[in-house]
Nucleic acid binder design. Structure first.
Lengths: 243, 243
DNA sequence: AATTTTCATTTGTCAGACATTTAATTGTAT
DNA sequence: ATACAATTAAATGTCTGACAAATGAAAATT
């Protein structure tokens, strides 16, 4: 392997790129051990710190894991759905907070994706996901609940809906969309009135899923979207008025 | 800022985590300059190489960018949709290839998400996205096209459909799902017969979008999904028979 | 005033060393 | 011979100190 020392990019970035491509192409299979840092530094003709910076870049993307000790080293990591969730969530969160995405746009995306799941959830309707949804609805109706806890429960409800589709790829894709919305949702002050409204819609959704009725689920989700946007608009209007 | 030197995690991982949290929480706003590497090494009470490893971890996630020179340093990076797309695509691709996700599962996820976009596309139906879809359909009907080129055009068609929803958050979420499928799609050998079938369905989708008819678009997408899964099954069956 | 030169700052890279972890090997005692 | 303890080797983790290269600002020069 060779590296261009006159490139505009850092050596560590180039080395990371080269190894990354080897992983993506399948040249380096899962659990394969990379050469030791010393060997890599010889192969790429760079110093060990430079190799290490490259490896840390890959580790940050969960592409490799490292282990110390005699039989240690850097190993190609099997990217788990769990790791991917976490990355997806932070990326989505930052994307929303840094790019002035409107609440409405984010909300539209989130509900569009959830509505894609609803028919599959209604079709499969597994007992444990339904139980989770019911449990979260029950929690949401507790009187002493803080707004943050209410939002967290809301996220849990929607994740159960998504997971109910029984498709891990969908769950992974949507984890970001649902969780990334939480910071904006936390801005909303949920009155007793709005909570009961939301709980009623959640109940309708759960009922529709349980009944295997995708059309009703879709309708309830649609109403929930409209209502959520309205609540956010009210908060924004109230803030503007306070100024 | 302090770091626990007895933690199970690497120092560089802890430092990266601390800075990452500062960015996510908004303590470090976009374009803010971090302290220089020497200053950070003093603040965290570690050596400069350790700080550098931490910074490279952040750079790998597009959270910071670095610049050399007198006024250089590490700056908090505004995570662009473009950067996020790229990350999303590699993560999704690896997730699919490393976890033995069945073609059917991936396909189901992809089409569920696309069907979530179709109504929005039909509602907004911007001229340039429609033009892209028509152009890709035309390309797909060229006789000399390789299977890879046909697949690439297929991806372009579906991306135009998704982008037509006019929601960048949706586009970002779906970029991964659509593009990650390409390696599996490339396994399929597209006969003249199957190509004309797919083109007919693409045309129906484009027509439905242009007419602002989400129901027809959904129906065509549903048929396309069924047909795609059937094609893949045929390939798998043929391979099994060849053994 | 414009241009060139110098300079200080900062990241990028290197070399070498020591610390720490870990598993295999070796040695020892029962 | 087996069980247990000590040693050893290999690998990552961390540190120190140094130099190279880029870059903008300040100083010097024309």
């Amino acid at each position: 392997m060779k590296i261009d020392p006159n490139s505009s990019k850092d050596l560590s970035a180039q080395i990371a790129q080269a190894i990354k491509e080897a992983i993506i192409s399948g040249q380096l299979p899962v659990d394969e051990r990379l050469p030791s840092e010393s060997e890599l530094s010889e192969q790429f003709d760079v110093s060990r710190p430079t190799v290490r910076e490259a490896l840390k870049r890959l580790a940050a993307q969960s592409l490799i894991r490292t282990q110390r000790g005699a039989t240690g080293g850097a190993f190609v990591n099997r990217l788990s759905f769990e790791d991917a969730y976490a990355q997806q969530i932070t990326t989505s969160t930052l994307l929303l907070s840094m790019n002035a995405v409107s609440f409405e746009t984010a909300c539209e995306a989130r509900y569009a994706l959830e509505r894609a799941c609803a028919p599959l959830s209604a079709q499969r309707r597994e007992a444990d996901h339904l139980a989770t949804m019911r449990a979260e609805i029950h929690r949401q109706s507790q009187p002493g609940l803080s707004d943050e806890a209410f939002c967290a429960s809301d996220v849990a409800f929607h994740r159960a809906l998504v997971d109910g589709a029984g498709n891990p790829v969908l769950s992974y894709q949507l984890a970001g969309a649902v969780e990334a919305m939480q910071p904006s949702m936390n801005m909303i002050t949920f009155t007793a009135r709005s909570r009961s409204e939301i709980i009623a819609l959640h109940t309708r959704i759960a009922d529709a899923i349980e009944a295997g009725n995708p059309i009703q689920a879709d309708a309830a989700l649609s109403e929930l979207q409209t209502y959520t946007v309205k609540l956010a608009d009210d908060v924004i209007a109230k803030r503007a008025a306070a100024k």
